[in-house]
């Protein structure tokens, strides 16, 4: 939550997260680079730059595979939400590792030539129409790297607020074609190059894990049916909403509303958090404030406003009771509009 922007927001958990992440990257690279030709019975070692490019490339693939697993894992099991909380730092470190891989490749395979290395990267292999083997798989890598750089460069909270969370998330959908491009980059490059199939197994298992988790999460997270009419929407028996929790209601427009019960009264706010459009209705009320399950942004359930000095706001919705049923207004009121809470007990008596 922000009052005034600072370069990087850290807290104790994030320090731990980043430390574990960087330590794992360090251990991966160290373990990769410590294997000697003597260990393998080879007469000579792989060139240093190629060895480094492989180490950073493999590391970036494994990291990206891990990142792609976090979203669906957290969707399928909320115990993985701590991994989601600081995923942007994970992404930035991955982009840095991928960029290092690119630098080693560029300064080795495309350097030492009369042409500039960036130009050489683009013209050295132009066998675009001669089948998969020999295809310039570097092109997939360039696309993926550019995508990762865009995602890393727009990871600051400012971008989310400036672009709006839907546009920001739309831009960050780039991760999906980027990961597919990374798989193609590896499968049409390194995997066709190596006789040993161990890395091919690693890539296949990683990529299929990502595919399986995403398809699983997509199937489990299908939207609830929208009401057909555009009037007030039936949100069910209000007494069945537990204290401190919410029921998520889908409107005819497709917008989702989180109806919270707090101190025996019901209030409705947008289900989309102002920060990253996280699902507020899956959050809880802590210290009288609705708390987003993704990054802990908080709102007063009666006004949709973050507590001072924070300035975030979400739209609110009017509620009414009719025949023991709770009804939600189909129209959002502007962010931060106070609503009168509806006491639950009235629902039982009318």
């Amino acid at each position: 939550m922000s009052v005034r922007y600072i370069p990087v927001q850290w807290n104790r958990f994030k320090w731990g997260y980043d430390a574990a992440l960087l330590a794992s990257v360090g251990v991966f690279l160290w373990a990769f680079l410590r294997v000697t030709p003597e260990d393998l019975g080879h007469e000579r070692d792989v060139s240093g730059a190629i060895r480094n490019a492989r180490a950073f490339g493999a590391c970036a693939f494994v990291m990206l595979t891990g990142i792609l697993c976090i979203g669906p894992l957290a969707r399928l099991d909320t115990r993985f939400l701590p991994l989601l909380y600081n995923r942007r730092h994970f992404g930035v470190v991955t982009a840095a590792v991928a960029l290092t891989h690119f630098s080693f490749v560029l300064d080795w395979y495309f350097a030492f030539s009369p042409a500039g290395k960036y130009e050489a990267l683009l013209f050295a292999n132009t066998s675009f129409t001669n089948g998969v083997a020999g295809f310039p798989f570097e092109a997939f890598g360039i696309f993926a790297l550019l995508s990762l750089l865009i995602l890393a460069a727009t990871s600051h909270d400012f971008w989310m607020k400036f672009l709006t969370p839907p546009v920001w998330k739309g831009l960050h959908y780039l991760i999906y074609p980027a990961y597919a491009a990374v798989v193609a980059h590896v499968a049409w490059g390194a995997l066709l190059d190596q006789e040993n199939t161990t890395f091919a197994w690693v890539v296949h298992v990683g990529a299929l894990l990502v595919v399986g988790l995403h398809l699983g999460a997509a199937l489990s997270g299908r939207d609830a049916a929208k009401p057909r009419t555009a009037g007030w929407v039936d949100a069910g028996d209000p007494a069945t909403i537990p204290e401190g929790r919410a029921r998520i209601v889908t409107l005819a427009s497709g917008d989702r509303v989180a109806v919270f019960r707090h101190e025996g009264a019901l209030s409705a706010i947008s289900n989309a958090c102002a920060h990253q459009n996280g699902p507020l209705g899956e959050g809880r009320i802590i210290d009288c404030l609705v708390t987003c399950p993704w990054h802990g942004f908080q709102y007063d359930v009666r006004t949709g406003r973050s507590p001072a000095p924070f300035t975030e706001k979400v739209p609110t919705y009017a509620l009414r009771l009719e025949g023991g049923r709770l009804l939600v207004s189909p129209d959002a009121d502007p962010p931060g509009t106070p609503q009168r809470p509806v006491p639950v007990h009235r629902g039982r008596t009318t």
Binding site: P166, A180, L215, G221, R222, G254, N277
Partner: peptide, 15 residues
């Protein structure tokens, strides 16, 4: 601003 994109399923399928 409060309408999150809902194309995850399509994006996941395409990927």
């Amino acid at each position: 601003r409060y309408r999150p994109p809902s194309a995850h399923a399509s994006a996941a399928a395409a990927m």
